[in-house]
């Protein structure tokens, strides 16, 4: 269902959504932006460049209870509440689509999937490219599925494309929506084409398939050692990445020493002890090996698993890395030069 809303009417609509639902919306955080509980419509900033944290954290929580236990009895902790996630950029939605596949395949993960099932996602096409975004090089500047509603700002109007019943219901909460026509679709296509060029702050030379193929023969490339020399193994690139989903599992015991909970927390393959077993023996004890693993995972291992390139070009890692070694564009361009 395609509808159009005057930008002046957007606030009234979002207010109605806030009244009816718990809303997590994109908003300003000092001079940056992030997602958080949206209390008032004035805080919503659909003109944002990139969110500090990827929206994955509302589905794979940074610190998440898997079950509670009391002595020898365990009880699964599945208490996902419905919410509206408002303002997701296309590249981040593509990342979520990949996590959906990964958590669904083989052994479905009920914790992630139940949160995902209960969320209504309102995506928005990028209005202002961030400093390091290169999603346009990967074809991830726009998205045509996986949203409940996709909003595209066209002049003084928002085109609202509701792809699901939940999305249509959300639109029904608004007043002033009018019918869209082919000119709106053409205008959206034009914005997608423009974003393909605009979301290229770094120029990736090879295409996705070429990178995956080249990684087959790049294991001993000098780039890994060169870059990893400056790696602090801090895991910042893992933390901000919308497709990183590795986790640790640990128990937290209450003061009674009988009850508690098992939690999973985000982990990162760049951290020194990520592959360390009791002994101790670290199966990836070189920074170089850890660094390489991350680019192989994005460019080959996960693509081999789900058929999709697993770096979405958000550029967060480029901005997060204190020693400026985490730019996937530099890495993937370098391996093409052999």
């Amino acid at each position: 269902m395609l509808k159009v809303l005057d930008t002046a009417e957007l606030g009234t609509w979002v207010e109605a959504i806030i009244k009816a639902h718990d809303v997590i919306g994109i908003q300003a955080r000092a001079d940056k932006f992030d997602f958080g509980p949206l209390a008032k419509v004035q805080d919503l900033r659909l003109d944002y460049d990139v969110s500090l944290n990827a929206p994955k954290r509302f589905f794979l929580l940074p610190d998440e209870k898997l079950f509670t236990f009391k002595k020898d009895e365990a009880k699964s902790a599945q208490a996902a509440e419905p919410f509206v996630l408002f303002g997701v950029h296309p590249y981040d939605l593509i990342a979520l689509r990949q996590l959906d596949k990964l958590f669904e395949m083989d052994n479905p993960d009920v914790h992630y999937l139940s949160r995902r099932a209960k969320a209504i996602v309102v995506a928005v096409d990028v209005q202002k490219p961030s400093a390091h975004v290169f999603a346009g090089c990967l074809g991830f500047e726009h998205v045509e599925d996986s949203y409940d509603i996709l909003l595209t700002k066209i002049g003084n109007e928002y085109l609202a494309d509701a792809a699901t019943a939940a999305g249509e219901k959300l639109i029904a909460l608004g007043k002033g929506f009018t019918k869209a026509d082919d000119t709106h679709l053409a205008a959206r296509k034009k914005i997608w084409d423009e974003n393909k060029q605009a979301l290229r702050r770094h120029e990736l030379k090879p295409n996705k398939a070429q990178i995956t193929a080249q990684l087959e023969k790049s294991y001993d490339h000098k780039i890994w050692k060169e870059k990893a020399r400056l790696c602090f193994s801090c895991g910042s690139c893992n933390l901000v990445c919308p497709t990183c989903y590795c986790f640790d599992v640990a128990d937290r015991l209450n003061w009674d020493l009988a009850s508690g909970e098992r939690v999973r927390t985000w982990d990162g393959c760049m951290l020194e002890d990520f592959a360390t077993v009791a002994g101790p023996h670290n199966f990836r004890n070189q920074r170089e090996a850890r660094y390489r693993h991350r680019y192989y995972r994005k460019g080959k291992y996960v693509p081999d698993k789900i058929g999709e390139f697993s770096c979405v070009g958000c550029g967060r890692c480029i901005g997060a890395c204190v020693t400026h070694i985490a730019n996937p564009v530099e890495v993937y361009n370098a391996i093409m030069e052999a």
Partner: peptide, 24 residues
Amino acid sequence: LERKMKCGVGKCGHCQINGLYACQ
């Protein structure tokens, strides 16, 4: 082959041997 494992079901990422999962 032994590797660090947390989930045992192909999710947590710890046991990867290049693209393979030691758990699966």
